[in-house]
């Protein structure tokens, strides 16, 4: 029983991180209808920038947690202005291919500059070690990452559903003509929303830095799991991404516990089942998706 509890808590801890990592993907999906394949590369950039800030400017984890998303926001704005914007009117496949190409460029550029063996990064002071709850042990950092992720997800969810800005953003994308007729400049919101999604990817990267290998390829595998999370949750649904993040974390943990070889396959079996039963995902709305 304690083993089961241990795996459950570990799954939840991983799930929180998955939710945050998938959140930016879901926001850009949901609001702009862009399949941003470069999300994994932006996540990698977030981690690499944190490591470089630490090594070269002695900027620690807590500052990076604020600075890196701001830098990545800027990067996202540039990306939208210079590239993504021009393909928005076309089939979503065009932007998918664009961001796919961008991924290859970013990964190779980081390889050129920082090599292939990876960059060092340590667990920030105060977040090292373990906590024991009964017979269950969890790493302090994993708990922190999970709680932090949940707070960010809830804040983003509230921002989009409960605030005036969120309302305008949603209206601009769901019914652009009618929103424009109300005197709102629809195009104005596209750039910041995209930048915001990229900033979230960067934030997930910072959060990953102390606990994962920081290499140019770190996002290449991770993006696959994130796509699964977003598809299971429902395209563009913030709540869906969060719930699916936890679900995938749990499924993965139980998979590892009871059938380790199939741990990753289980995630995609879950994805296939969800798509079969509910093509728009757990929380996706048919008409918006």
């Amino acid at each position: 029983m304690s083993a089961f509890l241990q795996y459950t808590l570990q799954g939840l801890a991983a799930g929180g991180f998955y939710a945050l990592s998938a959140l930016g993907l879901a926001v850009i999906f949901g609001v702009l209808g862009v399949v941003n394949f470069s999300h994994g590369a932006c996540y990698m950039l977030g981690a690499v920038i944190s490591a470089v800030l630490l090594a070269e400017l002695h900027v620690g984890f807590w500052v990076a947690l604020v600075v890196v998303p701001i830098l990545m926001f800027g990067f996202g704005v540039l990306m939208e202005r210079l590239l993504v914007r021009w393909l928005l009117a076309l089939d979503p496949l065009y932007n998918f291919l664009l961001t796919f190409g961008l991924t290859l460029i970013l990964v190779e550029a980081v390889k050129q500059k920082y090599g292939v063996s990876g960059l060092p990064y340590e667990v920030p002071a105060g977040l090292g070690g373990q906590v024991s709850i009964g017979s269950v042990n969890l790493s302090v950092y994993a708990i922190f990452a999970c709680l932090f992720s949940v707070v960010v997800c809830v804040a983003v969810g509230l921002l989009l559903t409960k605030t005036r800005i969120g309302m305008i953003v949603r209206a601009s994308t769901e019914a652009p003509e009618r929103t424009r007729a109300l005197g709102i400049n629809v195009g104005r919101w596209v750039t910041p929303v995209f930048g915001f999604g990229i900033a979230l990817a960067g934030l997930a990267g910072v959060l990953a830095a102390p606990t994962r290998a920081i290499t140019a390829e770190m996002g290449s595998n991770f993006i696959i799991i994130l796509f699964a999370v977003v598809v299971i949750g429902g395209l563009g649904s913030i709540l869906g991404a969060v719930v699916a993040g936890f679900l995938v974390g749990l499924v993965e943990a139980y998979g590892i516990a009871y059938a380790p070889t199939y741990a990753q396959i289980v995630i995609f079996v879950l994805m296939a089942l969800v798509v079969l039963v509910r093509p728009s995902g757990l929380f996706g709305r048919e008409e918006v998706a």
Binding site: F29, G33, V35, F37, D91, P92, L93, F96, F100, S220, N221, I223, I224, F227, A228, V230, V231, L235, F268, M271, P279, S280, E286, E287, V288, A289
Partner: peptide, 21 residues
């Protein structure tokens, strides 16, 4: 219709990433 296109793109994205891996 848009939902279908996006859905299709995501399917391609997921497949492409799996194939890449």
């Amino acid at each position: 219709m848009r939902s279908r296109t996006v859905q299709g793109t995501v399917a391609i994205a997921a497949t492409a990433s799996l194939a890449l891996a």
